[in-house]
Each structure stands twice: as structure tokens, then as C-alpha cells.
């Protein structure tokens, strides 16, 4: 630009001033809004950071809970298996107790019915063939 250019500027100064006066409040308002938005943006970023932290924390907790669920599922399976085992043991115990009666019934039968040999015709040779000992 040359020095002569100053001459045409003068005629523009006023309109420019008028424009500035007209636009200044809006600019100021926009500046305020910009500032608020910047603050809001900062707040949102902070909130986002917090949420990300919480999300990370929740993810960690979820992993812990998943591990806990898996552990409890395992325990549940273990309890189920133990219940089945208790039922089996209870049956076995009942059978063991019933053996007392079965042994008693058979012992009674053998001693009262089978072994009283006095009234029978016994072949001594047959008796001798019964080996009372295994050795």
C-alpha cells in the first residue's frame, strides 16, 4: 500500500466505526458465550474424564463380579454334587444298617434251621469234605 492510500480510508472510518458500534455488543455477547462454552466444554471434558474413570472402574467391577458369579456357580455345582453325595451316603448308611438285620435274619435261620443236624441223616464223608479253614 502507498501513502496515498490513506485518503480513501478516511471516508471508510466512520462507517467502520458505526459497524463496530453495532457489532460490538454482539461480539461481547459472543465472547461471553464463547467463554461459557469453553467453561462448559472444560466441565464436560472433566465429566467425561470422570465417566471414563467410572467406566473403567465399572469394567473392573464387572470383571470382579463375573469372577464372583463364576465362583458362586462353581460353589453351586459343588453344593449340588455334595447334595448328591449326601443322598448316596444316606442310602449307603441305610443299607449298612439294614445289613445288621439281614445278617441277623440269616444267622438266625442258619443256626435254627440249617445247622441243627441232630435229627438228620448226615453223611460224615460229606462233612469231612467241607474244609472249615482256608489254609
Amino acid at each position: 500500500m502507498t501513502p496515498d492510500d490513506a485518503a480513501p480510508r478516511r471516508p471508510l472510518a466512520r462507517p467502520a466505526h458505526l459497524v463496530r458500534r453495532v457489532l460490538a455488543p454482539a461480539g461481547l455477547e459472543l465472547a461471553g458465550q464463547l467463554s461459557a462454552l469453553q467453561q462448559e466444554f472444560a466441565d464436560l471434558r472433566a465429566a467425561d474424564d470422570r465417566l471414563r474413570e467410572e467406566l473403567d472402574e465399572a469394567r473392573g467391577r464387572t470383571r470382579e463380579l463375573e469372577a464372583e458369579v463364576a465362583r458362586l456357580r462353581g460353589l453351586g455345582d459343588e453344593v449340588g454334587a455334595l447334595r448328591e453325595e449326601v443322598a448316596r451316603l444316606r442310602d449307603g448308611l441305610h443299607e449298612e444298617r439294614r445289613l445288621h438285620l439281614r445278617v441277623a435274619e440269616l444267622t438266625d435261620l442258619v443256626t435254627e434251621l440249617v445247622l441243627p443236624l441232630h435229627d438228620r441223616e448226615i453223611d460224615p464223608a460229606v462233612l469231612r469234605s467241607l474244609r472249615p479253614e482256608t489254609l
Partner: peptide, 11 residues
């Protein structure tokens, strides 16, 4: 005291 003996006695 053994149940099998107690039962035999009861028989």
C-alpha cells in the same frame, strides 16, 4: 450293643 446281636437276642 451291636444291632445284629440285639436283633438275634430279640428273635
Amino acid at each position: 450293643s451291636v444291632p445284629v446281636d440285639v436283633v438275634l437276642e430279640a428273635f
